[in-house]
């Protein structure tokens, strides 16, 4: 029999990622940068909401956007065309989430010496991105009406890691039998501290309120 020895590791799979996330948070805080990680399902309206937020906030803050997708640069083009702020497109080549290393590489690639506010549009997915801390200051999670008001019950972790949740596409709620109050209750069940905003990009509702909240949060970090 071959001789072997045992090496104790006792390391959680996300522990290195979490260590790195702490470092990123520290570095960004020193540079007075607010980093927002936007997570949601594919098609929930992340890009649309980001465009609307950026156009309202770009006169006040210097903004940079990181677009993470498995492939293509359609979102980066949309955002660059519709907002004019700087955008970098990251490709994960199939991976379903962003690790801290990818997040940091993207920040460096984007350039963080001339920004106050960076938005990361994460991969459309309600599972894996929640498990990997990107080093973001806060997580914004979107829940769109067609997905159903029960999603916080089905994807617990995503709503547990959210600092703020935006209900999107509220203009079509009647057609989808979506109960906003029930959605809020389900979010609170997972995370009683999450701030919830009810929005419709089409009707321009709730976006200003979300912007006010973000402005307050960004200002705490950037002290502008």
């Amino acid at each position: 029999m071959e001789e072997y020895k045992i090496v104790e590791i006792k390391e959680d799979i996300t522990s290195r990622n979490n260590e790195q996330a702490k470092q990123i948070k520290k570095d960004l805080a020193e540079k007075k940068i607010f980093y927002l990680n936007v997570m949601a399902s594919p098609g929930s309206g992340k890009t649309t909401l980001i465009v609307q937020l950026v156009n309202r906030l770009k006169d006040r803050f210097r903004i940079g956007i990181i677009e993470a997708d498995i492939d293509s640069d359609v979102d980066a083009k949309t955002i660059a065309d519709q907002t004019g702020v700087k955008v970098m497109q990251m490709h994960t080549g199939g991976a379903c989430h962003i690790t801290c290393q990818m997040s940091w590489d993207a920040l460096v690639e984007l350039g963080i010496d001339d920004v106050d506010f960076v938005i990361l549009e994460n991969i459309g997915n309600l599972v894996c991105p929640a498990e990997f801390d990107t080093g973001a200051t806060q997580n914004l999670v979107l829940l769109s009406v067609p997905e159903g008001d029960d999603k916080p019950l089905k994807y617990p972790l995503m709503f547990e890691v959210a600092s703020v949740v935006a209900l999107t596409k509220m203009d079509v709620a009647p057609a989808f039998d979506f109960d906003g109050e029930k959605a809020k209750k389900n979010i609170a069940y997972r995370n009683k501290d999450a701030k919830v905003f009810v929005t419709s990009a089409v009707k321009q509702e709730g976006i200003d309120e979300l912007c006010d909240y973000l402005t307050e949060q960004i200002t705490k970090t950037t002290r502008i």
């Binding site: 071959e2 020895k5 045992i6 590791i9 006792k10």
Partner: peptide, 20 residues
């Protein structure tokens, strides 16, 4: 009560490895 939290069950941990 709903004021509860997970104590164990969320682990994805490498405990040890056997090597030569």
């Amino acid at each position: 009560s709903l004021d509860t939290y997970l104590v164990t069950g969320n682990e994805i941990k490498i405990k040890s490895i056997e090597v030569v």
